[in-house]
Design a protein around this nucleic acid. Structure first.
Length: 251
DNA sequence: GTGGTAGCATTAAT
DNA sequence: GATTAATGCTACCA
């Protein structure tokens, strides 16, 4: 069995991803960094995950106690889609998605994928709180979060890319995991299928309770990702993917 | 043999 | 034509 990337020794002890989009003055950034020093008594050990066209950062964002608390709060707060909203069309067929899903974000935001348009609910206190931690840790702001709940190892997500046109292409997608640890697989678009053009090994991660995975540009242009079935997993996992959706797109 | 997983095939609308 | 956030089937491995 191949070793998973984040089971290997961690070589990168930077406090946050090296790549940052400069959105604010040096003075404000310095001020914010000073505040972060107060907030996080332990530096966040980032692990860089790289391959051709793949650029991700992985870190344990929350302590076990914090993550336990957030998980419990979300179980009470989040209301998941039902009925038609929980269905998706793939290969011409309509399926119920094999997990629970909900969309939260700024007022009036919508997000479309695979023939389904979602109107975001307004942030819950816990989602806002976690979003703040992610922003403070990464320097990125987000206006939308997609919540996926996998009740056990039978729930999963098929291989896909997050390449929706309405996403800000320069803003990374920040994926926070709570609950049961699950495998997460990246595969390069040119290494899929029988007549694949190239031999490229998939990149495999295990997403732990309280972890944060940043998918930086241009990862989603080249790499598909999936959360495969794992029958031995019996506990639920909640995944939050924070995104920035572009506003006022030209019509 | 058996259970779990990896990888390919599917399918018809956009 | 290319793509596809789904499942189904088969081959492989422990």
């Amino acid at each position: 069995m191949e070793k998973f990337v984040n089971k290997l020794s961690c070589t990168n002890n930077a406090r946050r991803p090296q790549k940052r989009i400069k959105l604010e003055s040096d003075e404000r950034m310095k001020q914010r960094e000073d505040n972060e020093e107060d907030e996080f008594s332990h530096p966040v050990p980032w692990q860089k995950i790289e391959s051709e066209g793949l650029d991700c950062d992985y870190a344990l964002l929350l302590s076990k106690e914090e993550a336990d608390h957030m998980f419990k709060q979300l179980e009470e707060e989040v209301v998941y889609s039902t009925g038609e909203e929980a269905k998706v069309r793939v290969f011409g067929k309509v399926h119920s998605i094999p997990r629970q899903q909900a969309a939260y974000g700024d007022a009036g935001l919508t997000y479309t994928y695979s023939g389904v348009t979602r109107l975001a609910c307004l942030w819950t206190p816990t989602l806002e709180q976690i979003g703040d931690v992610v922003t403070k840790t990464t320097g990125q702001t987000f206006n939308f979060v997609l919540v996926n709940r996998y009740k056990d190892g039978q729930d999963h997500m098929g291989e896909h890319r997050d390449d929706e046109k309405e996403l800000d292409p320069l803003c990374p997608i920040a994926s926070v995991s709570l609950g049961a640890a699950r495998d997460f697989i990246f595969r390069h678009r040119d290494a899929r299928g029988k007549r694949s053009r190239r031999q490229m090994d998939p990149v495999k991660l295990e997403l732990a309770h309280g972890s944060l995975l940043l998918m930086n540009s241009p990862t989603n242009a080249f790499w598909y990702h999936s959360l495969p079935v794992r029958k031995k997993v019996s506990l639920p996992r909640i995944n939050l993917t924070f995104r920035r959706i572009l506003l006022d797109r030209k019509k």
